[in-house]
Simulated assay, not measured.
Amino acid sequence: MRRMIVFAALGACALLASCDASPSAADPSFGLGHTPTPARLAAIDIDVDPSGAGLPAGAGTSSDGAVVYAAKCASCHGAKGEGLAPVPPLVGRTPDVGYDFARADRAPRTIGNYWPYATTVFDYVRRAMPQNAPGSLSDTETYAVVAWLLHENGIIGANAEMNATTLPAVQMPARGIFVLDDRQGGRPFR
């Protein structure tokens, strides 16, 4: 038994001694992946910020969105956005705006009681929905679904058209509960 332990230890030492501890000057990508083309970068550079920068051309209304939602969203989120377990609800204003989500984190966070910017709803729907085909909605379909969601949450009127001008102007009920993180000090990170 002792002999096996000694041979195992010597083998481990030999293996460690044969390893080069210095960084390799070889390809840092290890031969994986490739440099994306400008066209590929443009296709994935679709972020939208709270001011509306990055919103594409197109427009949609709640009535247009009801059709798209029924066809592409309701199977997971429910016919009225009520959520189907385990998918959370999208529609609802309970608990009311101002509810302390930090202290009672089990309350549902819906578009009507939690999301601070309508442009963020657009950005998320555009990138991640529907779950079985993320990014498959056209810009017009995305505007329409977002208009339907905002209308169902009582945020916009039934005939309001959402587009690159009107969407950033929507005042979300929960906008005031979010504060700018302007802390100073501490160790910076990148």
Rank of each mutant, 00 (worst) to 15 (best):
residue 137 L to N: 07
residue 46 I to N: 07
residue 95 P to C: 11
residue 132 N to Y: 02
residue 93 R to I: 05
residue 53 A to V: 11
residue 101 F to R: 09
residue 100 D to H: 03
residue 45 D to C: 04
residue 74 A to M: 12
residue 81 G to H: 06
residue 98 G to I: 02
residue 76 C to Q: 12
residue 46 I to R: 14
residue 121 V to F: 04
residue 94 T to K: 09
residue 47 D to A: 10
residue 127 R to H: 15
residue 52 G to Q: 01
residue 100 D to R: 10
residue 101 F to C: 06
residue 62 S to T: 01
residue 107 A to G: 13
residue 133 A to F: 04
residue 127 R to L: 11
residue 81 G to N: 07
residue 48 V to G: 06
residue 77 H to S: 13
residue 51 S to T: 15
residue 79 A to L: 15
residue 47 D to Q: 05
residue 75 S to P: 00
residue 64 D to C: 00
residue 123 D to W: 00
residue 124 Y to M: 13
residue 143 Y to L: 08
residue 125 V to L: 06
residue 56 P to D: 06
residue 144 A to G: 10
residue 70 A to F: 08
residue 148 W to T: 07
residue 55 L to P: 00
residue 104 A to N: 09
residue 117 Y to E: 06
residue 80 K to G: 09
residue 145 V to R: 02
residue 73 C to T: 11
residue 126 R to M: 12
residue 120 T to N: 01
residue 46 I to D: 02
residue 97 V to F: 11
residue 81 G to Q: 08
residue 115 W to N: 02
residue 88 P to H: 08
residue 56 P to N: 02
residue 118 A to W: 11
residue 69 Y to H: 12
residue 147 A to M: 09
residue 145 V to P: 08
residue 89 P to T: 11
residue 76 C to V: 13
residue 139 D to F: 00
residue 133 A to I: 03
residue 148 W to I: 00
residue 62 S to L: 02
residue 84 L to V: 15
residue 71 A to R: 08
residue 93 R to A: 14
residue 148 W to G: 06
residue 128 A to M: 02
residue 68 V to C: 07
residue 47 D to G: 04
residue 59 A to Y: 09
residue 81 G to W: 07
residue 75 S to K: 02
residue 70 A to N: 05
residue 62 S to H: 05
residue 85 A to I: 07
residue 61 T to W: 04
residue 88 P to D: 09
residue 98 G to P: 01
residue 79 A to E: 15
residue 66 A to Q: 15
residue 60 G to M: 09
residue 130 P to C: 06
residue 98 G to W: 02
residue 79 A to G: 13
residue 52 G to I: 02
residue 141 E to P: 03
residue 78 G to T: 04
residue 118 A to R: 05
residue 75 S to F: 04
residue 85 A to F: 13
residue 139 D to V: 01
residue 102 A to L: 14
residue 103 R to F: 03
residue 113 N to C: 13
residue 135 G to V: 10
residue 89 P to I: 05
residue 59 A to H: 08
residue 56 P to Q: 05
residue 150 L to N: 04
residue 105 D to N: 09
residue 53 A to Y: 11
residue 104 A to P: 00
residue 93 R to N: 15
residue 57 A to V: 12
residue 106 R to C: 06
residue 109 R to P: 05
residue 74 A to Q: 12
residue 70 A to Q: 14
residue 145 V to N: 07
residue 95 P to H: 14
residue 138 S to P: 03
